[in-house]
Each structure stands twice: as C-alpha cells, then as structure tokens.
Amino acid sequence: MKVEALTLDEVLPVRHAVLWPNELVAFCRVAEDEAGEHFGVRQNGEVICVASVFLRATRQGCASLPPRLSVRGRGLALWCLSF
C-alpha cells in the first residue's frame, strides 16, 4: 500500500461508496474540490481511502477521509494525511 496524489475522478467513487451511497455521485462533490489536493491509499491497485485537503489564505481544512468499510480501523486516514 502507498499514499499517492489522486485525481478528483479517483476520489469521488470512494466518497460515494462510503459516505453517501444512496445519493448521486454529483452529490459527493464539495465546492472546494477543484482547488483542493486529493490523496489516497491504494491496495492492489484499488483506492481504499481518500483525503481531500483544501488550503486557502483565509482558511484551511480537510474533508472526506473515508476508508472503505473493509479497511476501517487501520489508521489509513491519518496515514493519508501525513503524506
């Protein structure tokens, strides 16, 4: 497994599957997505955890740290942020 930069298109399916599976994928977007940096953990080529980081002059934050249910509790979200 490794942490790497991801595209928004790679992040959205994980957000959708983990956070809002009953909504449309478009619902999983946040206003800052285009300006944010996106990272994730892959296991056997599959993205299993994502982190989206948003930095602005006036505000910084992080959103969407969902690991897939099958890998929760392993500290992957924190590992992803340490990247």
Rank of each mutant, 00 (worst) to 15 (best):
V3L: 05
V3Y: 10
V3K: 05
V3I: 15
V3W: 04
V3E: 03
E4G: 10
E4N: 06
E4V: 09
A5H: 13
L6R: 01
L6E: 00
L6N: 03
T7P: 02
T7K: 06
T7W: 03
L8G: 09
D9M: 08
D9Y: 05
D9H: 10
E10K: 10
E10R: 10
E10S: 11
E10A: 13
E10C: 12
V11H: 04
V11M: 10
L12K: 06
P13S: 08
P13E: 07
P13H: 06
P13N: 11
V14W: 02
R15I: 12
H16M: 01
H16D: 04
A17G: 06
A17C: 02
A17T: 04
A17P: 00
A17V: 03
A17I: 01
A17K: 09
V18S: 06
V18A: 10
V18H: 06
L19M: 15
L19I: 07
W20Q: 10
P21H: 05
P21F: 02
E23M: 07
E23K: 06
E23F: 01
L24C: 13
V25A: 11
V25P: 04
V25E: 13
V25Q: 14
A26Y: 08
A26D: 15
A26W: 09
R29N: 07
R29W: 04
R29A: 14
R29Y: 13
V30A: 10
A31E: 13
A31G: 02
A31V: 02
E32K: 11
E32T: 11
D33K: 01
D33M: 08
D33G: 03
E34C: 11
A35H: 08
A35F: 00
A35C: 05
G36P: 00
G36Y: 00
G36N: 03
G36L: 00
G36A: 15
G36R: 00
E37L: 11
H38I: 01
H38K: 02
F39N: 05
F39D: 05
G40R: 01
G40A: 04
G40Y: 04
V41P: 07
V41S: 01
R42Y: 10
Q43H: 14
N44E: 15
N44R: 13
N44C: 08
G45S: 12
G45I: 09
G45F: 15
V47D: 03
V47C: 04
V47N: 02
I48L: 07
C49E: 07
C49D: 01
C49V: 07
V50R: 01
V50P: 00
A51D: 03
A51T: 01
A51M: 10
S52H: 02
S52I: 07
S52Q: 05
S52V: 10
V53H: 09
V53Q: 12
V53W: 12
F54H: 12
F54P: 00
F54Y: 15
F54M: 13
L55Q: 12
L55W: 10
L55S: 13
L55V: 14
L55Y: 09
L55D: 13
R56S: 14
A57L: 14
